[in-house]
Simulated scan of single mutants.
Amino acid sequence: MSEQHSGVLRSRLLAAGAAAAAAVALAGCGGTGEAQEPGQRGPFLEVAETAMPAPSYEFSTTEGDPWSFGDVAQEKLTLLYFGYTSCPDVCPTTMADVAAALEGMGPAADGFDVVMVSTDPDRDTPEQLRGWLDSFDPGFTGVRGPIDDVVDAAEAYGIPVDKPEKTEGDYLVSHGQRVAVLDGAGSAVGFFDEGTAPDDMGGVLSDLAQERL
């Protein structure tokens, strides 16, 4: 990756992080007109359950099956990440951390699904995305959709991402800076920041499983 690519991408991600934090804070306001403060549980930022309902976009899995945010498993919690397979560092590290967190939970991990929505669907072919996810866990679901809809869906969850952009010989792609936790209706109930240690993530997920499943 060129220094220009790295610098521009880093600037984009820093800006996206600030926007995401603001979006999560705003999402703590419920529909009753009374402010609801988001809760903090160690590395996990909780929001009001009704603050971020599932956006109404239909994408497809790497197997070609229809997939939508509202169709996640009702009896499970879903870990959702917006990323891309050619990401040199953050995306693979995040998925590896998620896989390690679930592995450390033992049988309790059966209460969770993991979905990655590609932010680079033109290059992340079904075969490319499936093979990449298999390197972390064959049970992870890969999802692709029109990039405009992907950007809008991520924004609905307070996770800013940009469309891929070609500029001065570089191909710039962004990813979300958080892993969202969705309930059985597809609503985001909280977020882990990228870089959350697997042990910390696993501890919170174990608590969420006991409370919600």
Rank of each mutant, 00 (worst) to 15 (best):
M1P: 15
M1I: 10
M1C: 06
S2E: 00
S2K: 00
Q4P: 05
H5D: 00
V8S: 05
V8H: 00
S11Y: 01
S11L: 06
R12T: 11
L14N: 07
A16F: 02
A16K: 05
A18D: 15
A21Q: 15
A21R: 11
A23C: 13
A23W: 12
A23H: 12
V24I: 14
L26Y: 09
A27S: 13
G28L: 05
G31R: 15
T32F: 06
G39Y: 05
G39K: 08
G39P: 01
Q40C: 05
L45N: 10
L45P: 07
V47K: 07
E49C: 07
T50G: 14
T50H: 15
M52L: 15
P53E: 08
P53T: 08
P53C: 06
A54K: 05
S56M: 14
Y57A: 08
Y57C: 00
E58C: 04
E58A: 09
F59M: 10
T61N: 02
P66A: 10
W67P: 00
W67D: 00
F69N: 03
D71L: 11
D71T: 15
V72Y: 12
V72H: 11
E75W: 03
K76P: 09
L79Y: 01
L80E: 04
Y81T: 03
Y84I: 00
T85G: 11
C87N: 09
P88V: 06
P88T: 06
V90S: 14
C91T: 03
P92G: 14
T94D: 06
M95T: 15
M95V: 15
E103V: 04
G104W: 11
M105T: 06
G106Y: 09
A108T: 14
A109N: 03
A109K: 04
A109M: 08
D110V: 01
F112A: 09
D113G: 06
V117M: 07
P121R: 05
D122M: 12
R123M: 00
R123Y: 04
R123K: 09
D124R: 11
D124F: 10
T125D: 07
T125S: 14
R130W: 12
W132Q: 08
W132M: 07
W132P: 06
L133Y: 09
F136I: 10
D137A: 09
P138R: 05
P138A: 10
P138I: 05
G139R: 13
G139L: 08
R144V: 02
G145S: 07
I147T: 04
V151P: 12
V151T: 10
A153V: 01
A154C: 09
E155W: 09
Y157I: 03
G158K: 02
I159E: 12
I159N: 08
D162M: 08
D162F: 01
P164T: 01
P164A: 00
E165L: 08
E165V: 04
K166C: 06
T167G: 02
E168A: 03
L172Q: 00
L172Y: 01
V173W: 01
S174C: 06
G176Q: 14
G176W: 14
G176Y: 14
Q177A: 11
R178C: 05
A180D: 13
L182T: 04
L182Q: 07
A185I: 02
G186W: 09
F191H: 06
F192R: 05
E194W: 10
G195P: 04
P198K: 03
D199M: 13
D200C: 10
M201P: 05
S206H: 02
D207F: 01
D207N: 11
D207A: 09
L208D: 11
L208Y: 01
A209S: 07
Q210P: 00
